[in-house]
Simulated scan of single mutants.
Amino acid sequence: MTSLETIWLVLVTGIWTLYLVLGGAELGVTMLLRLGSGAARTVNRQAALRAIGPTWQANDVWLICAIGAMFGAFPAWYAGFTEGLYLPLVVLILALIVRHAGIEFADHHSPIGRERWTRAVIACSAVLPVGWGVAWAAAADGSLARGGVDVLSWSAVLAGLALLALCHAMGAALLAHRTSGALAVAATRRLRWAAPLAAVLGVAATVGVAQGAADGVTAGPLAVALLVVAGAALATLTVAGGQGRARVAHHAAGVAVGGLLGALVAALGSRVIAGAGGVDLATSASGGYTLAWMTAITVALLPVLLWVLHLAGRRRSTGPRRGLGEGLFEGLR
């Protein structure tokens, strides 16, 4: 692979990581909209949505950027990804639509209608991480190259469940440290068992994907290093979650997701869809002219994106006015 191709492979992986970490935490929050009982459940639901109010829609922009970067820089990868996941992607798109609609529409209905929309939002929030986990793991065991129902291999489904559990733990941790009162207590209680469960499933999924990997998928030094980082993060998640240290658990879960995804891409190398009929980026990436223009546009637009994140961080903060660095950090969180 050329230098530009390598840079864009790293960028695509990084953008997917941002979506799965930032958007995944907020998917976890919307899985927890029914914490509590009776009237307290309605209050908790509103508090949970306020906690992610400035960014729950904006974080889906990372998904659009990831798909757009794949399409522009590696059209064969995009084609193989969407062809192999045709039916699962339809389900994921419908889940995205229903989740967004449910969050917006629920408060405009009667209590019965609001409860139905809330249940739909919770279900769709669980479907999304399972689907993306299956998609990435299927690229490693060769089933994505075959497409159809073959993508639902045991290792891919296990990876989907692991990502679901990690998002659930991140959501509980986010609520525990961003809210107060009964909701924070309930979220901390949920985190105490969700964190170790996520860690166990993360380890199991890593072993499963490694055992089911197709020929040519090997863990080189970079993949091993990222797996060590992910393992340390999972251990930290278990300890911090059990102790109710929500901020530490939140960040540890995010590092674990990023480390596992990075290790998977590093193991795949340029052959990002393994197996017979898979995709090798070294021979199917866009030309140097296209990649050069994409790089220039990205460099030009990056400051705008960082400024938007800064504004989101300032909007979330209820304290004194924050500078660019502090606001940006809050926006990324």
Rank of each mutant, 00 (worst) to 15 (best):
T295L: 15
T318A: 13
A95P: 05
L11W: 09
L324E: 08
A169C: 09
G269E: 04
T30V: 12
V203S: 10
H109A: 12
T238V: 07
G80Q: 03
G287L: 14
A95T: 03
F81Q: 05
A40V: 13
Q211S: 14
F81T: 00
E326R: 14
E330Y: 09
V29K: 01
A137E: 00
A76R: 10
L227N: 07
T17K: 02
G216L: 10
S180E: 13
H251M: 11
A240F: 04
R50F: 09
Q57M: 14
A186Y: 07
L166K: 00
G72A: 15
R50D: 15
G142I: 00
D280S: 10
D215S: 15
L305M: 13
L305C: 11
W77R: 02
L260T: 04
L166M: 12
L222H: 08
A266T: 01
A296S: 10
G325T: 13
A39W: 09
A186R: 05
L305A: 15
G287T: 09
V21W: 01
Y289I: 14
T238D: 06
V121M: 06
V21F: 06
L166E: 03
L183G: 06
P75H: 09
A187P: 00
A213W: 02
A225I: 06
A159E: 03
G288Y: 08
G148P: 08
W77M: 11
T118F: 05
R189V: 15
A187E: 01
A145E: 02
H177K: 10
V98A: 09
R114Y: 06
A296P: 07
A223L: 06
W293C: 12
A266Y: 00
P221T: 07
L20I: 13
V228Y: 12
G241F: 01
V21Q: 03
P129Y: 05
A230H: 02
L261R: 00
G202P: 01
